[in-house]
Design a protein around this nucleic acid. Structure first.
Lengths: 233, 233
DNA sequence: TGTATACAATATGTATACAAAAAGACTGTG
DNA sequence: CACAGTCTTTTTGTATACATATTGTATACA
């Protein structure tokens, strides 16, 4: 991939991290990345620094850059923090949005709905990311947005995992998520902060349930487990 | 200043931004900075990228790096956001702190108390910064810490301004702040999250009052204003 | 006098070469 | 066979030279 602009390189690396093509904890090689994007190492290193600043990577002196990890403590912290930040961001977005931003958000939601109706789960997760990042921009609060964007990185990466096996039950959940997006847009349009908070918390509950169902799936059928138990005894 | 390590350069730039020696909005020149620190432009540029990622600077393509601004909207957002983030960080710190971190915090507070008793206001503001940054580390929450550290940058810069003219009233406020620090350490030591929140909000009220008193000082004596009013009528 | 354009000066962005540090392979010894 | 130490290889960090973009200035023209 020769002669790619710096910004394009930045975006693609973000994308590949969000899609989990670059797995958490994975070590990145400067030379090969630079060759891949048709850049020299100098600008590529600056890109890595920026990605680290945004929470996509962690860089250690003389040890290279690795994709931000997603261990158990990370997930625990994520579940603890996300609803509060999401809710506050939504309230601020309802209060501070501009008209142009609302149009952008509606377009992003149209794309999300399109992806879900076509059953393209990975694309839907990325559209969802963009949707919520736009709400972050509306909030006009650089402090909270820093937290939000870090949360969204992990949220999207988790979604990449749990959206994948799209059974009929998961499909209906995605439909509900899309409806909640529409409702949230209405609340933001009406500048109704309290409603935006409430809808956001509902949206979060849905998302959390989906993730939890993946992490703690239904147990195996009993007759299969029985043999294993007999061996153990 | 020849042959300064990269990390030292990073720290000094942070320090000079927090002390407002590098004023908000000020444009930084790569070449002169590199010469000043005895580095070449390549590593210095990486440092600037990192500082931008941490919220100290903002970088625009082909336009150089400028110190993060502090305009009216920034301050409004700051006052809106700080108490919530501070309170939550304190609660998490009380819940998740380690023994070693508590010792560090006590040392930082000793330094802060020392600076205040000596009347060294600028140094006190920096010690205060470090004190609260350590509480952030205790919280073990990278999402909220990103917000906290950005808040602390602006908080410390505001303090640099309003701590300066240290009248007797300001001195007593600083003493109270130091006592609140001690109380907060006790709460964190006892792992009392609710108490930590309450103390943090009190601490915030004190800080906010100080800043507001600086921004909206007592009006001029009436007899001086009288003449002006007569002219107007 | 105001404005537009060309040109010069300055600053930022990129590529390459080299230095330093970490990781890995090899060999000798217990 | 395990292990320590040294050498080689690989990777990261830095300096310099050059390319490109922006800014400032002078001059020509309306």
């Amino acid at each position: 991939m020769p002669r790619v602009s710096k910004e394009a390189c930045l975006d693609e690396l973000k994308l590949r991290i969000l899609r989990m093509e670059l797995e958490p904890g994975m070590l990145l090689d400067e030379a090969s990345l630079a060759a891949h994007f048709g850049l020299s190492r100098t600008p590529l290193r600056e890109i890595l620094q920026r990605l680290a600043g945004d929470g996509y990577l962690s860089i250690r002196e003389n040890r290279g850059a690795k994709v931000a990890s997603m261990d158990v403590t990370t997930m625990r912290t994520f579940f603890q923090t996300a609803p509060m930040v999401y809710a506050n961001i939504s309230r601020l977005a309802a209060e501070n949005r501009t008209g142009a931003q609302l149009s952008d958000l509606q377009r992003a939601q149209a794309e999300f709905a399109n992806c879900t109706s076509e059953g393209d789960a990975p694309a839907a997760a990325l559209c969802n990311h963009r949707f919520h990042a736009l709400i972050g921009e509306m909030a006009q609060n650089p402090y909270l947005v820093a937290a939000l964007n870090r949360l969204l990185i992990d949220h999207t990466r988790l979604s990449q995992t749990f959206y994948r096996p799209a059974g009929p039950r998961e499909a209906s959940l995605v439909t509900r998520a899309s409806e909640q997006h529409d409702a949230l847009i209405c609340a933001i349009d009406a500048r109704d902060g309290d409603l935006a908070i409430e809808l956001t918390l509902q949206h979060w509950d849905l998302s959390r349930d989906s993730i939890e169902r993946f992490v703690r799936p239904d147990p195996l059928p009993v007759d299969l487990v029985a043999r294993k138990e007999k061996d153990a005894v």
